[in-house]
Amino acid sequence: MRVLVVGSTGVVGRRLVPLLEAVGHEVTCPAHPPARAVTEAAPEAVVNLLTATERDFPAQAAHTLYQAAQRVGASRVLTQSLAYAYQPGTGLADEDAPLWTHRTPRRFAPVLHALLELERLTDEAGGLVLRYGHLYGPGSAYAPDGSFAARVRARKVPLVGGGHSTLSFTHADDAATAVVAALDKDVTGVLNVVDDTPVTMHEFLPAYAALLDAPVPRRVPAALARLTTGSWGAAFMNGLRGADNSRARRRLDWRPRHPSWRAGIQGTSLRAGQWEA
């Protein structure tokens, strides 16, 4: 299959392109503008790995991209989104749960608006949205040289309040295999592509710091955090809802190679500044 991948240099794209080629797909990775590349490459599938939060890829660009894909007869349009943008609630969120549109933290509101628009455009194009959890793996914020790891080492990520957020992680390799699985299946709508083992922030942050050989995270009351970091900082620590991957497992016949973040992260590799592939 001829596959055009937009965002091939990102965390997922770097893992996806070699995998697509290994299983026999013909891959095109365009520079901007991607819509022109669609006309030239005439792909059978378009994979958009740039989220709507990318400043250089607004919703209008996505609309133009999907229109170009339809003109050349592309049969599949796949787009990535977020599986941690669900309205806070109890239990794991499936794809029918509402996104965080009620009392949205101010800092997160523009991101959510952009994601909603991107998902709407994908739906209009008859495509499939893959909602990823907290992405980790080479090149990610959680990698040894990543931005989140650096902040944890510097003790700049305190455990706010009770750390009640539930985190669903997605290894970049598992995100990539989900794309490959979705290419040849007539599945549309939205799917959560996350691991099997959600973890609370209260459990994750100290354990992650230990794997980094970093200092124990400070503890900060939620009220104080709201004053210093705003509503999003407190919400990130206490309001996020984990996601259920049952539908993706069933409809894509997909299974995460890394069923939990612990299975995907090797402590010795983190201390050495290397990531185990």
Score class of each variant (00 low, 15 high):
residue 131 R to I: 09
residue 24 G to V: 06
residue 215 P to R: 10
residue 222 A to R: 12
residue 48 N to T: 03
residue 215 P to C: 10
residue 3 V to L: 06
residue 117 E to W: 07
residue 208 Y to R: 00
residue 52 A to S: 05
residue 48 N to V: 08
residue 121 L to Q: 06
residue 149 A to V: 09
residue 265 I to M: 00
residue 183 L to F: 12
residue 153 R to D: 06
residue 102 H to W: 13
residue 266 Q to Y: 09
residue 214 A to P: 12
residue 7 G to L: 04
residue 49 L to Q: 15
residue 50 L to N: 11
residue 85 A to N: 07
residue 113 H to C: 00
residue 117 E to T: 12
residue 189 G to E: 14
residue 110 P to F: 01
residue 231 S to L: 02
residue 28 T to G: 10
residue 145 D to Y: 06
residue 242 G to T: 03
residue 226 R to C: 02
residue 274 Q to H: 15
residue 9 T to F: 15
residue 130 L to F: 13
residue 203 E to S: 04
residue 256 P to N: 07
residue 51 T to A: 05
residue 45 A to V: 10
residue 136 Y to K: 12
residue 195 D to M: 00
residue 242 G to W: 01
residue 198 P to I: 11
residue 206 P to H: 06
residue 103 R to N: 11
residue 119 E to G: 10
residue 176 A to Q: 14
residue 194 V to M: 13
residue 132 Y to R: 11
residue 186 D to A: 15
residue 79 T to D: 10
residue 216 V to N: 01
residue 103 R to I: 03
residue 121 L to V: 02
residue 86 Y to M: 09
residue 2 R to F: 02
residue 47 V to R: 11
residue 131 R to D: 09
residue 139 G to R: 14
residue 245 N to L: 08
residue 124 E to L: 09
residue 73 G to L: 08
residue 37 A to C: 03
residue 57 F to G: 07
residue 67 Q to L: 05
residue 84 Y to Q: 05
residue 243 A to P: 06
residue 72 V to W: 07
residue 51 T to W: 04
residue 148 F to G: 03
residue 188 T to I: 08
residue 98 P to Q: 14
residue 268 T to K: 09
residue 203 E to Q: 06
residue 118 L to G: 01
residue 114 A to E: 07
residue 131 R to G: 09
residue 182 A to Y: 06
residue 198 P to W: 12
residue 121 L to F: 04
residue 28 T to V: 12
residue 190 V to F: 01
residue 203 E to D: 07
residue 224 L to S: 11
residue 201 M to F: 00
residue 69 A to I: 10
residue 251 R to L: 15
residue 148 F to D: 04
residue 110 P to H: 00
residue 238 N to D: 00
residue 150 A to K: 07
residue 108 F to T: 06
residue 178 A to G: 07
residue 36 R to K: 02
residue 19 L to C: 08
residue 93 A to W: 09
residue 4 L to E: 14
residue 157 V to S: 04
residue 82 L to T: 09
residue 65 L to D: 02
residue 19 L to G: 12
residue 134 H to V: 08
residue 37 A to P: 03
residue 147 S to R: 12
residue 276 E to L: 15
residue 86 Y to Q: 06
residue 176 A to N: 13
residue 220 V to C: 02
residue 51 T to E: 06
residue 85 A to Q: 07
residue 276 E to Y: 12
residue 190 V to G: 01
residue 98 P to F: 14
residue 121 L to S: 05
residue 184 D to N: 05
residue 72 V to G: 07
residue 154 A to F: 08
residue 1 M to S: 08
residue 243 A to D: 04
residue 13 G to T: 08
residue 127 G to P: 10
residue 188 T to E: 09
residue 38 V to D: 03
residue 139 G to Q: 14
residue 90 T to K: 13
residue 177 T to R: 15
residue 129 V to Q: 02
residue 113 H to D: 02
residue 112 L to M: 06
residue 123 D to R: 12
residue 238 N to C: 00
residue 65 L to T: 06
residue 256 P to C: 08
residue 274 Q to Y: 15
residue 272 A to F: 07
residue 226 R to E: 03
residue 255 R to G: 11
residue 9 T to V: 15
residue 173 D to N: 11
